[in-house]
């Protein structure tokens, strides 16, 4: 193994929060910064929402009264910000292990193989993912093919021009679920049926009205204990409230859960089973010199919130570095 490479600050994750932190740290005069990203592109979740035929403008720039843009456009803007700064970018780099006390990351990438990076401060901006059926706790039944997460659906639609289903059923009624219904309709599927474990959809009425431009999904709330997926080889429907709702594909949407496993590996304090890392007011984790930014903090935040949160965390990191030197 090569000897350890040292940086002032390491940032794990090149989504909105990670880029926000990196760019701000760079502007504040921090010399050596590296941002480590496991996928092959910058932008995180927004980058999955492509500006393509049938594309749907979602998520970002709602909060500040701006018009919705395509996620991809926001990701490109993030990338531009990052490339302007002097931050070193390491794509396709998976952190395997961390030593929290020594602030060392062991990572692997195609260029270097397994290698150690260390830093004076480390920001975890690892984002979140959608909860699995088991994590939701009310979703069971069979295990057929064509039960997708939103990320998988978007990748099939936009990266591969494949419409996986005609009659979609969406499990999860927040913004992500309604956006997925719109996206599917725009791609040629019929209006989706959306189901969730609550009486009324989690997505706000304003957001639902916005997505009416593309589709008008039917909503069914769960009154009994569980939703059962049916279908032997391929998904054929769900059973809910004693009724069968047929479909030829299912998308499991929303209900974000933090990607905090690196913190857990390093014995940094994380609340279980919510997976939220324990942070102080200035976003410090339980080990000195470790910070968290963006959706890893838990909850459901849009790209802009994460970007600005990343900037805020960067300021906390600058304070920490000046205090500790």
């Amino acid at each position: 193994m090569d000897s350890t490479k040292h940086f002032n600050v390491l940032i794990i994750g090149a989504g909105p929060a990670g880029v926000g932190a990196a760019v701000t740290l760079s502007k504040r005069g921090i010399k050596s910064i590296a941002i480590i990203e496991r996928s092959d592109k910058i932008g995180g979740i927004p980058s999955f929402y492509k500006k393509k035929k049938g594309g749907v403008r979602t998520f970002v720039r709602w909060s500040r009264g701006g018009i919705p843009v395509f996620g991809e456009e926001y990701a490109q803007w993030l990338e531009k910000q990052l490339l302007k700064s002097k931050v070193r970018i390491e794509l396709q780099s998976q952190v395997l292990n961390i030593d929290a006390k020594k602030k060392i990351l062991t990572l692997v990438n195609p260029k270097e193989g397994e290698v150690n990076y260390s830093a004076d401060a480390i920001v975890m901006a690892c984002g979140s993912r959608e909860e699995t059926p088991a994590e939701r706790g009310w979703l069971a039944g069979s295990r057929p093919v064509r039960v997708f997460f939103t990320k998988q659906l978007l990748s099939l639609l936009d990266d591969n021009h494949l419409l996986p289903m005609n009659n979609p059923l969406i499990i999860g009624s927040d913004l992500i679920g309604y956006a997925a219904a719109a996206k599917l309709k725009a791609a040629g599927a019929s209006d989706a049926v959306i189901v969730d474990n609550c009486n009324r959809p989690k997505c706000s009425i304003f957001e639902r009205l916005y997505f009416r431009m593309w589709s008008n999904p039917k909503y069914q709330g769960l009154k009994s204990k569980s939703i059962e997926i049916t279908g032997n080889k391929a998904a054929s429907g769900v059973r809910l409230n004693g009724k069968n709702i047929p479909c030829d594909g299912i998308v499991i949407c929303g209900e974000l859960i933090p990607n905090s496993e690196l913190a857990l590996i390093g014995n940094i304090k994380v609340e279980l089973p919510s997976r939220k890392p324990v942070v102080t007011e200035d976003y410090q984790l339980s080990e000195s010199g470790w910070f968290a930014a963006g959706n890893i903090l838990g909850g459901f935040h849009g790209a802009e919130w994460c970007y600005f949160n990343g900037r805020r965390v960067a300021r906390a990191v600058v304070n920490y570095l000046s205090e500790s030197s």
Binding site: G54, P144, V145, R146, L156, L157, N160, H161, L162, L163, P164, M165, N166, A187, G188, A189, K233, A234, D248, G249
Partner: peptide, 21 residues
């Protein structure tokens, strides 16, 4: 890609009767 299956014929990840998108 559309013919990749979970566990053999009949379990294609893409429904066989969807239109080209």
């Amino acid at each position: 890609l559309k013919k990749i299956t979970k566990r053999g014929p009949g379990s294609e990840i893409i429904s066989t009767n969807t239109s080209q998108y």
